[in-house]
Simulated scan of single mutants.
Amino acid sequence: MTTAIVCSAVLAASIFVLGFNVSMNRGYAAKRGGSQMPTDPADRLLIAQRAHGNATEYVPTLIALFLLVGWLSPTPWAQVLIVLATASRLLHAISMLRSETLASENAPRMTGAMGTYAFGLALAVTAGVAGVAAV
């Protein structure tokens, strides 16, 4: 359960760090007279907003899965899935923030996205199987 709690805390903290980054970029945009609602995929504010938005789309569900799986099935395999899902989310966020533009893909960003899907689905299946086995 410790792995599930630590990884949940890391992902929860990432939401706040990414949100703070959006606030900083809003301030920078305001100082230079830029838009607060950018549409240019190379705009730093848009990149920050999408990195934060994307994290908020997946992190809450992952945290719920981490805690369920950590409670119902704290096996080494489940702990590996939790760590890999956490690493995937962090890789995705960092890759987005380091991108010059959101208009083009890059390998780390795609790896983070695909890892989120694969490990998230594996955790969901693990939670379901563990839940059925607990009955």
Score class of each variant (00 low, 15 high):
76 P>C: 14
55 A>V: 06
121 L>C: 10
105 E>D: 15
107 A>E: 10
82 I>H: 00
34 G>R: 03
60 P>D: 04
8 S>P: 05
40 D>T: 05
12 A>I: 00
118 A>K: 01
39 T>Q: 14
124 A>Y: 08
95 S>W: 01
64 A>M: 12
51 A>I: 05
66 F>Q: 02
48 A>D: 05
42 A>G: 14
14 S>A: 12
73 S>Q: 09
112 G>D: 02
53 G>Q: 02
6 V>N: 07
78 A>H: 08
69 V>W: 03
120 G>I: 04
56 T>Y: 02
61 T>W: 11
4 A>T: 00
36 Q>K: 13
61 T>N: 11
116 T>C: 10
129 V>Y: 05
100 E>C: 10
39 T>K: 07
133 A>Y: 01
21 N>S: 11
90 L>H: 07
8 S>M: 03
92 H>F: 07
24 M>R: 13
99 S>C: 08
105 E>G: 14
26 R>E: 07
111 T>C: 13
54 N>R: 04
5 I>N: 08
86 T>Q: 00
13 A>F: 00
112 G>V: 05
26 R>I: 03
108 P>W: 07
95 S>F: 04
84 L>R: 05
119 F>T: 14
10 V>L: 12
82 I>L: 05
94 I>F: 11
68 L>W: 09
95 S>D: 07
26 R>S: 06
99 S>Y: 02
97 L>V: 08
37 M>Y: 15
83 V>I: 15
96 M>D: 08
12 A>N: 02
106 N>G: 11
59 V>D: 04
75 T>N: 08
128 G>R: 05
128 G>W: 02
1 M>N: 12
34 G>N: 01
44 R>D: 13
65 L>F: 09
107 A>L: 13
71 W>A: 14
109 R>W: 01
40 D>K: 04
125 V>H: 09
44 R>T: 08
95 S>Y: 00
13 A>V: 04
83 V>P: 08
113 A>Q: 06
110 M>T: 15
49 Q>S: 08
93 A>V: 06
134 A>I: 07
15 I>M: 11
76 P>E: 09
124 A>V: 05
19 G>L: 02
123 L>Y: 01
50 R>S: 08
17 V>F: 02
79 Q>W: 06
24 M>F: 11
48 A>R: 01
63 I>K: 01
82 I>M: 14
131 G>P: 09
101 T>Q: 06
135 V>Q: 13
79 Q>N: 15
51 A>E: 02
39 T>A: 12
